[in-house]
Simulated assay, not measured.
Amino acid sequence: MAGQTTSQQRFMRRGVTKFFFLDKITSGGVPSREDLAAGTDLSAFISDVEGFALENTPIETPDMASDFTSNIPGEDKADNSSLTFYEDKVSDTIEELLSKGTEGYVVILRKGDVATSKSMDSFPVRVGSRSATYTAGAEPAKFKVSFNITDRPQLDAAVPAKGE
């Protein structure tokens, strides 16, 4: 990109990014439009997101020729991941969907539901815990669902076109 001027359309994730929970993915790790339609759109119920990122743990490679310690890429691992939800006073829908031990996929459309945008991440998960959060402060009731990432996530996949 040296010597080129590039414009960039920045955005805020709130109101754009979509979060889905899918029981299954039918086509090799990348959700289809049918998979998304069969899943649950969690976006309107989420108050906070933690994790859902893949990180690399570098391996140090010191040698006797230098006092600088270089490193090489090591193992990949997923961050501890959780979603915090607003608690519904009359419905237990989200709590029942995401009960302890439930397996499925958290699918994130980072730039929204924009067909062919390579911004869809799919995390195979198991619910590790779900617990209410308590406070005496003047804020809405919430609960937190912690997820274990059970396999390598599929990152930067194309969002399927509607009708696919």
Results as ranks from 00 to 15, higher is better:
residue 31 P to F: 01
residue 128 G to L: 02
residue 44 A to M: 03
residue 112 G to D: 04
residue 91 S to W: 01
residue 48 D to P: 01
residue 124 P to H: 05
residue 66 S to V: 07
residue 99 S to R: 02
residue 142 K to T: 15
residue 51 G to H: 02
residue 37 A to T: 12
residue 1 M to R: 09
residue 129 S to M: 09
residue 70 S to I: 05
residue 50 E to W: 13
residue 89 K to R: 03
residue 92 D to G: 11
residue 58 P to D: 07
residue 51 G to L: 00
residue 124 P to A: 03
residue 136 A to P: 15
residue 64 M to C: 09
residue 24 K to G: 12
residue 49 V to W: 07
residue 128 G to D: 01
residue 25 I to K: 01
residue 162 K to V: 10
residue 67 D to E: 07
residue 76 D to I: 07
residue 128 G to W: 02
residue 9 Q to P: 14
residue 73 P to F: 15
residue 72 I to N: 01
residue 36 L to T: 09
residue 74 G to A: 06
residue 37 A to P: 00
residue 159 V to C: 04
residue 132 A to N: 15
residue 135 T to F: 00
residue 134 Y to L: 08
residue 24 K to T: 15
residue 68 F to L: 09
residue 40 T to M: 02
residue 68 F to N: 08
residue 60 E to F: 12
residue 116 T to H: 10
residue 143 F to I: 00
residue 30 V to D: 06
residue 156 D to E: 06
residue 16 V to T: 14
residue 97 L to E: 13
residue 75 E to S: 01
residue 94 I to N: 05
residue 133 T to V: 09
residue 55 E to M: 15
residue 143 F to R: 00
residue 103 E to V: 04
residue 41 D to F: 02
residue 122 S to G: 07
residue 121 D to L: 04
residue 158 A to R: 06
residue 7 S to V: 14
residue 22 L to N: 00
residue 51 G to P: 09
residue 147 F to M: 08
residue 41 D to P: 11
residue 83 L to A: 09
residue 63 D to S: 12
residue 11 F to T: 10
residue 158 A to Y: 07
residue 8 Q to F: 13
residue 93 T to R: 07
residue 103 E to I: 03
residue 5 T to G: 01
residue 124 P to N: 02
residue 64 M to E: 12
residue 51 G to M: 02
residue 115 A to C: 04
residue 153 P to L: 09
residue 125 V to A: 12
residue 141 A to V: 06
residue 35 D to K: 09
residue 107 V to Y: 13
residue 6 T to R: 10
residue 138 A to V: 15
residue 126 R to L: 14
residue 54 L to M: 11
residue 142 K to W: 13
residue 148 N to G: 10
residue 54 L to A: 10
residue 84 T to Q: 12
residue 46 I to D: 06
residue 18 K to E: 10
residue 104 G to W: 03
residue 76 D to C: 00
residue 9 Q to E: 04
residue 153 P to D: 07
residue 10 R to D: 02
residue 161 A to Y: 05
residue 69 T to R: 13
residue 65 A to H: 11
residue 72 I to S: 04
residue 26 T to N: 02
residue 163 G to D: 11
residue 109 L to D: 06
residue 25 I to V: 15
residue 161 A to S: 05
residue 43 S to M: 04
residue 37 A to E: 09
residue 115 A to E: 11
residue 142 K to P: 15
residue 6 T to W: 08
residue 70 S to A: 02
residue 76 D to S: 08
residue 57 T to W: 15
residue 56 N to F: 12
residue 29 G to I: 07
residue 31 P to D: 01
residue 161 A to H: 05
residue 24 K to Y: 07
residue 104 G to E: 04
residue 85 F to Y: 12
residue 42 L to Q: 08
residue 95 E to K: 11
